[in-house]
Design a protein around this nucleic acid. Structure first.
Lengths: 121, 121, 121, 121
DNA sequence: GTGGTCTAGACCACC
DNA sequence: GTGGTCTAGACCACC
C-alpha cells in the first residue's frame, strides 16, 4: 500500500499517515495481521524523518489499530472490537459536516446517498 | 445565541467559535440576515482576545457564511448557494469517519441511522 | 516543585518526569489548577531537551492529570474523576510486588503496614 | 506450570517470563527446589528465541529466586532469605501506584482491601 | 534489524 | 510566549 503525503496540507504528516493506514484497513487493502513497513523503511520511502512515522505508529497503536513488537515490527490488529460506536471526536465532526450539508441545501436523502457511496467505495 | 468555549479542547478557539456559528445557522438559531455580535462584544462576553474572535469572523466570511460591512457589523448571509456540494475537506473527513465506522463493525444501515438522527436534531 | 532526574536509571527521563508530577499531585505539592513550568523552562532547568519534557506532558495529558492550552501552558487538572479504580497496569504491578513481598517472608500485616505508611506520607 | 506470553505487551518477553515464575513461586505452584524447564525446552514450548529465556533465567538468578548448576539445570531456590524487605525498585513502584490510587479518590481502607485480596489470591 | 528514546535546533499555529 | 510539529542524526534495549 502506497502512502502519499501532501506537504502543503495543514494536516500534520503523522496524522496523514495515520489516516491513510486507517483507510487501508477499512477498505481491505491492509489485511488483519498484515505487516506494515518498518518505521525506517516507510520514512525512507516517503522521504521524511523516522520520528514522524514513529509518531503515527504510536498513535495507531494507542487507538488499537495496530500492535508493534520489537521482533517483527508493526502489524495490523487481528481482531477489532465490534464496539459499533463512533468516538466522541468523530461524532462531533460528523455533526459539523452535516450542518454544512444542510446549509448548502443538501437534503437528508442526498447526504445519505453520499454516505452510502463512500461506504461501498 | 450563546457561544461556549472549551479551553482544554485541542480545537483552536477561533475554530470552536466558527463551528458553533455554523451549527447555529444550520439549525435555525441564527436566521438569514441576522446580526452577529461585534467582535469586541463577543470577545468580552467569552472572555478572550478579540483577535481570536476576529479570526473566526474572517474565516466565516471566507467560507461565505457571513458578510460584514463597516457600518453594521457582521450578519448571517441572506441566501446560501444551493451548491449541494460538500467541501473537499468535509468529504475527506467524512470518508475518514466512515472508515472508522466500518472498522468498529458498524453496518451501513447503522451508520446511516446515526446520520439521520443528526440531520433531524 | 523540584524535578530531579536520575540519569543512570533505566526508567526513561520522560517517565521520571511524569512519575514525579503524579507524585506531586497526589501529595498536594501540586494543587489543582496550578500551573506547571513551561516545556522550555522545565527543560532548561533540568538540562534536557524540550522534546523530552513535551513527551512527559503529552503522557500526563493523555492520562488526564494535566491539561494544556496554548495561551497559558500546562495546568494540573482541577477535578479528578473519583473512579476509585486502578489501571490494569497498576493492578498487575501491584500483584507482582505482592508476590515479591510474600517470597521474602513478609506477612500480609507487614505489607499492609508499609502501604499505610506510604499512604500517609 | 505454563508460561504464557503476550506478544503485544510492552513488557519485554524476558520480563514476562521472570514475572510469571516469581508469581508461581509466591503462590506455591513452583515448590522450593523444584526443577524449571531447560532454557531450550521452555524456548521451544513458548516458541521464542532461547536467548530470551536465558536472559530471564539470568535475571531470576541475580535476584536470588533460582539457582543453576551445569548438570541439573535451573531449580527454584530452597530457602528464601526472610529479609522482609522490598527492593528499592518495588518500593518506588508501590509509592507510584499509591499516588495514583489517592488521585483517583481511593481511600486508604479501599486500597488496603485490594492488597488484602491480592495477598490471599 | 526492530522499535524506543533522546538531542539540538528549527519553524509554525495560536493567542 | 506558548505548546505542537518536524528534522537529521545518534544510541539503546530487545530479539
Amino acid at each position: 500500500m502506497v502512502i502519499s503525503i501532501n506537504e502543503t496540507s495543514e494536516v500534520p504528516i503523522y496524522q496523514q499517515i495515520r489516516n491513510q493506514i486507517v483507510l487501508g484497513i477499512s477498505d481491505g487493502r491492509l489485511k488483519p495481521g498484515e505487516q506494515l513497513p518498518t518505521v525506517r523503511a516507510l520514512a525512507g520511502e516517503i522521504g521524511i524523518n523516522s520520528m514522524t512515522v514513529n509518531k503515527a505508529y504510536v498513535l495507531l497503536k494507542q487507538e488499537g489499530y495496530i500492535y508493534t513488537d520489537r521482533r517483527n515490527g508493526a502489524h495490523v490488529r487481528k481482531e477489532f472490537s465490534e464496539a459499533k460506536e463512533l468516538s466522541e471526536k468523530s461524532k462531533e465532526l460528523l455533526q459539523q459536516i452535516i450542518s454544512e450539508a444542510k446549509i448548502c441545501g443538501m437534503t437528508q436523502e442526498e447526504f445519505l446517498k453520499i454516505c452510502e457511496n463512500m461506504y461501498k467505495g
